[in-house]
Amino acid sequence: MSKRLPRTVRLILKNRLTTMGLSVVFLLVLIALTAPLIVPFPHDTAETHIDNRFLSPSSQHFFGTDELGRDVFSRVLYGSRLSLQVGAIAIGLALTIGVPLGVVAGYSGGMLDEVIMRITDVFLSFPPLLLAMAISTLLGPNLVNAMIAIAIAWWPWYTRLLRSEAISVRERDFVQAARAMGASQGKIVFRHVLPNCLTPIVIQASMDFGSIMLTSAALSFLGLGAQPPTPEWGLMVSTGRTFFLTHWWIVTFPGLAIFIAVLSFNLVGDGLREILDPKMRRKRR
């Protein structure tokens, strides 16, 4: 591993687009962590200043102010916290459901595999955004429910991926050896099979991060995610809609933030796939 890490880093640095994506992701994380300290108007996440309504971008308000006089720049920076949180929690939840089911289905085979995979097929028959919309409507529109809805829409992709990995790993010699040594099923699955299936999951999860951020923004835009006055990017675009033709900055900057964040995560995901996926590596040679 120690030998491999520098090589991976070297490969990442060689790919300009991936490096660019990774730098923006680091910057986003940094902004998210330090937002309360660095934003010029920290109270503008909730406080309104009617006298300052619709001020165009200036040296005082870099991205102007919105319909309630709040500083758009401060709210956009704060929004990075929510977007990253939603992405991380939703992916974490989806992995928590999808990974164990996939590894059990792939390792055990037979009837259990059949049942898990047919349920997975049903969930996969819904485009993720549709399922997430339906679930968050029914659970009630708020950010937590939106994360749950996204996780419910996403887990089957991980189950399917992990199952196919587990099927190939279960036939490998070290698994046979563990079985011959009398290791319990649980130990074989979680100590031997699962750790050897993780690379494709890491790649897939990193590629999905952008899509999940996009889905969460779309839910908020439709009124199914974060609720006012939360400084969530999708919601900011949605509430700014009424005024955007006369005050372009209200929707332009939060939307641009979604776009840049999603683009960076996609670039990193793509880069990681090229570097970590042996099939892609071979192709590049």
């Binding site: 687009l17 952008g210 996009l214 923004a217 779309a218 835009f221 999708g234 675009v237 949605s238 809609r241 955007f244 033709l245 372009w248 929707v251 332009t252 939307g255 979604i258 776009f259 999603v262 683009l263 996609n266 670039l267 793509d270």
Partner: peptide, 25 residues
């Protein structure tokens, strides 16, 4: 490649509004 990556990363609802700003307004 960059163009195609951009296409997938754009929030459609926002793109629509930006097009309205540029091509209508």
């Amino acid at each position: 490649r960059l163009f195609s990556i951009v296409g997938v990363a754009l929030p459609t609802f926002w793109l629509g509004m930006i097009l309205q700003l540029v091509f209508f307004k």
